[in-house]
Design a protein around this nucleic acid. Structure first.
Length: 266
DNA sequence: TGGTATGTTCCAAA
DNA sequence: TTTTGGAACATACC
């Protein structure tokens, strides 16, 4: 489900709720979602206070007063819910954090692709991640260098979290459309204006996603409004908002991919 | 029923 | 060596 804008929205929603709270307990019945292990995570986080809730790529990051980090990756279908005592228990609860003074944070994940990890340092709590696309340090020059390293297809390159963090299938398609680039174009053959257009397109697509509190598509993620403003994703057969040509669907790197065949000619 | 799904990782093949 | 394709993970929806 969630890409950078959705995760950012969730972080903003829960930040005030959990910041400064002390963890009293942690339970999970799905051990393979938790690393290094449920016991190690519990031992590492119980009794600690959450100093800050942040985001890195698609990971939620809880910084603890021990200096350690707890990360939550929502996978395809994960979500967080806050519950007070007496609330009815939602479906598909895979893990829960209990807080001193009451309240529980629930990790619900029907498909069980989500992951929970503890590490003493931030980098250890996530996979290897490229730069944050909305940070100042992510300059056009940085992006250009990363595109030029190898001859990758653009679509899978944008989905590669070690190249750039946070883009998923929706915002990759949206960024390519905004830049007027074909998903099968080679990353190291772009002109300087094309690189510049893609750089701006990525940031604009993500920023609009955040402003609209993410994309709500099916039963998985609720509350966002970006779905009404997508240019190509999920719009197969519908007219391009720029030129009216029907949006077409193709498969690139095993992912459904949506393009305007006229605006994104190969 | 079969196809598809907002994700990641690992291995085989080209 | 680099890049891509495919499978696996697990469940729900259309």
């Amino acid at each position: 489900m969630p890409e950078l804008p959705e995760v950012e929205t969730i972080v903003q929603r829960f930040r005030s709720q959990v910041t400064g709270r002390r963890i009293a307990g942690f339970v999970s019945r799905w051990a393979r979602q938790v690393s290094p292990s449920v016991a190690v995570v519990r031992r590492s986080i119980v009794g600690r206070e959450i100093e800050q809730l942040g985001r890195r790529g698609k990971y939620l990051l809880f910084r603890l007063d021990s200096g350690g980090f707890l990360s939550v990756h929502l996978g395809m279908s994960g979500r967080l819910e806050w519950a007070e005592d007496g609330d009815t228990r939602p479906a598909h609860v895979r893990a829960a954090w209990e807080f001193e003074g009451g309240g529980r944070l629930l990790f619900c994940d029907p498909r069980k692709f989500g992951r929970i990890r503890y590490a003493p340092d931030q980098a250890g709590a996530t996979a290897e991640l490229g730069p944050e696309p909305l940070e100042r340090r992510f300059t056009l020059a940085v992006f250009q260098e990363r595109l030029g390293r190898r001859a990758r297809l653009l679509k899978p390159l944008l989905l590669d979290q070690s190249v750039i963090a946070g883009l998923g299938n929706i915002y990759a398609d949206e960024a390519l459309f905004r830049a007027g680039l074909h998903p099968l174009a080679r990353s190291n053959r772009l002109s300087v204006p094309q690189v510049s257009a893609l750089y701006a397109a990525i940031r604009a697509a993500l920023r609009e996603g955040i402003r609209r509190q993410g994309t709500s598509f099916d039963w998985v993620y609720a509350g966002g409004g970006m779905q009404a403003h997508l240019r190509v994703y999920g719009r197969t057969g519908e007219p391009c908002r720029t030129c009216g040509t029907p949006i077409t669907y193709l498969r690139v790197a095993q992912r459904g991919t949506h393009i305007c065949p006229k605006c994104q000619a190969q």
